[in-house]
Design a protein around this nucleic acid. Structure first.
Lengths: 125, 125
DNA sequence: CATGGATATGCATAAGAAAACATATCGTTA
DNA sequence: TAACGATATGTTTTCTTATGCATATCCATG
């Protein structure tokens, strides 16, 4: 055993969250909404996406409204009625936003894991 | 105006949190405890640090206990009694842990800000 | 050896977020 | 044109987590 920390280091798991707020502190985009937007696009439906992620429709609807309220234009194209009851997909802007965050998130995943590895090594030696 | 996003981009602020958990999901170290540990060392007292950060002593005490319970050795050297009532400072292990997290956090601050800048630029062009 | 002020810790309460519940609306299709 | 299923949104309940409160303990110093 090198340092007192040694025996515990393997049991430490890193987590992180990134999110964006407007100047009043309202949450605009974070991991939760990001995943939700992606899944909505995949499923073609808010309800289906909520069911899969285990979120309540009510909450999701409110959260997504915040983003659109902030930007002032829709990120989602929602349709009501029809045989399927309705459907939802990303607007072109929604797609752009998600794609940008995809990239950002992928980059950060990489550097943060690397930084964490260094952190653990520091405590080890 | 280049894209629909343009007028809002200046009002978006990035936030992030990093924290570590043990395998049962108990929070070990994160921004809150990290800042608290640093301030305790600076002030030489848990109470003084809590007052400055606006945290309740009760909560802080409980949070710090979790870390020490996880590691199984003290990160703080606490002293009760005396003219000053008591005092607290970091143990050598506490200092090591804080120093390692300092470095980690500084590195991440840099890359995340850089990544965020790129994210905004992506939406701008 | 009495005092003061910080540490130590249980417990009761309040605040805030999420879940649950309830209903209305919409519009395509059978 | 009746019905179905998803979107839309207000209201209530639940739960987690922080806060507040109370009280005990400790011990260098005057």
């Amino acid at each position: 055993m090198q340092t007192k920390f040694e025996s515990k280091l393997d049991h430490i798991r890193l987590h992180y969250k990134m999110w964006m707020e407007d100047s009043s502190g309202t949450g605009i985009l974070g991991d939760g909404k990001w995943k939700m937007l992606k899944l909505i696009e995949e499923k073609g439906s808010m309800k289906a996406a909520c069911d899969e992620l285990g979120y309540t429709y009510r909450r999701t609807w409110g959260n997504l409204k915040k983003i659109e309220d902030f930007f002032g234009f829709p990120l989602l194209e929602k349709h009501r009625g029809g045989a399927e009851g309705g459907s939802t997909q990303l607007s072109p802007e929604g797609k752009r936003l998600v794609a940008a965050f995809d990239r950002f998130h992928a980059d950060m995943d990489m550097v943060i894991q690397k930084g964490f590895f260094t952190f653990i090594q520091t405590l080890r030696s």
